[in-house]
């Protein structure tokens, strides 16, 4: 702070408190709604303080009880989401790391072309090629499978660029020393490059886990079997499960379960998360 201006300090805190209310209020309202019985939402105004049905509501959406209300159980959906998030994050990291290594540490024909083909994927998000991508997945028999949920999404230009940038900062002396000592490229990659990239990889993992967990359109396209629903797309099924008003207490319990894992990851690994964000957008 450059100078002491009491009114400005007051204004600062007012802005921030308003900010926190805007950011946190929707989550609070959802949490509160998920702790009340269904009849609390028939008319009037939603309560702002937690009720007594917390355990009952969450048990109902997680297990078989959900079916009585026309919802698929959320427990298996959470498992599917976890598989998808981990599969996408680890898959993207693995294939991007090795392709960046190939592009940086070798000279071979078509190297630049390979680089540009990977770059091209930035320009073709799922949203712009919905139907033909679906047809490819259907023809390969990958609908309603974990392979279909993860593999098509693991090509990553951003992660490849990030690793490429990082590899370019690794001193040439290391590769020279490794070569003199008789280490081949595989040994150099495994024993030197991968350990050196640890921090970048961790930061990338946080971002990619959130990206994978939060996928919506993709699971909507490739799953028709409730056994493969993920929780983020399940929210839509839950909200539209009944013809009348949604069962708000259960819908909000599903929403809380869907948002909690990525929020915990962000809060627990805040430093890595911010670093990952800034690096992936360079």
């Amino acid at each position: 702070m450059v100078e002491n201006r009491p009114w400005l300090s007051v204004a600062t805190h007012v802005v921030l408190i308003i900010g926190l209310v805007i950011v946190l209020f929707p989550i609070w309202v959802a949490f509160v709604a998920s702790t009340h019985p269904a009849d609390r939402f028939v008319s009037g105004v939603v309560p702002l303080l937690p009720g007594t049905h917390l355990i009952g509501n969450y048990a109902a959406v997680l297990g078989e009880g959900a079916r009585q209300n026309g919802l698929p159980p959320v427990g298996p959906m959470l498992v599917n989401s976890l598989v998808m998030a981990l599969g996408i994050a680890l898959g993207k990291i693995a294939i991007s790391l090795i392709s960046a290594f190939a592009i940086v540490y070798f000279r071979f024909p078509f190297r630049k072309i390979a680089f540009w083909i990977i770059f091209l994927t930035l320009m073709l998000p799922v949203e712009v090629r919905i139907v033909p991508t679906y047809q490819v997945i259907a023809n390969l028999g990958m609908l309603n499978s974990y392979v279909g949920l993860t593999v098509p999404l693991i090509a990553s230009a951003t992660a490849t660029f990030l690793y490429r940038q990082f590899f370019l900062t690794i001193p040439d002396e290391l590769a020279e020393a490794a070569r003199i000592d008789g280490a081949g490229p595989w040994k150099f990659l495994k024993d030197i490059v991968i350990p050196l990239s640890r921090t970048s990889t961790a930061a990338l993992f946080v971002i990619l886990f959130i990206y994978g967990w939060n996928q919506y359109l993709w699971p909507l396209l490739v799953t028709t079997d409730p056994d493969y629903y993920t929780v983020v797309m399940g929210i839509q099924r839950a909200a539209r499960a009944t013809d009348q008003e949604p069962l708000w207490n259960l819908v909000m319990a599903v929403a809380m379960l869907a948002l909690l894992p990525p929020v915990i990851v962000v809060l627990a690994m805040q430093k890595l998360f911010v670093r990952g964000l800034v690096e992936t957008e360079k």
Binding site: F101, F106, A155, A175
Partner: peptide, 23 residues
């Protein structure tokens, strides 16, 4: 840099295959 083109081609294969089939 390292020499050879077989190993880097192998390393690029997964990324390029996925890009080709799904993009």
């Amino acid at each position: 840099v390292f020499s050879g083109w077989g190993f880097p081609a192998l390393l690029l294969l997964p990324q390029l295959a996925i890009t080709f089939i799904f993009f």
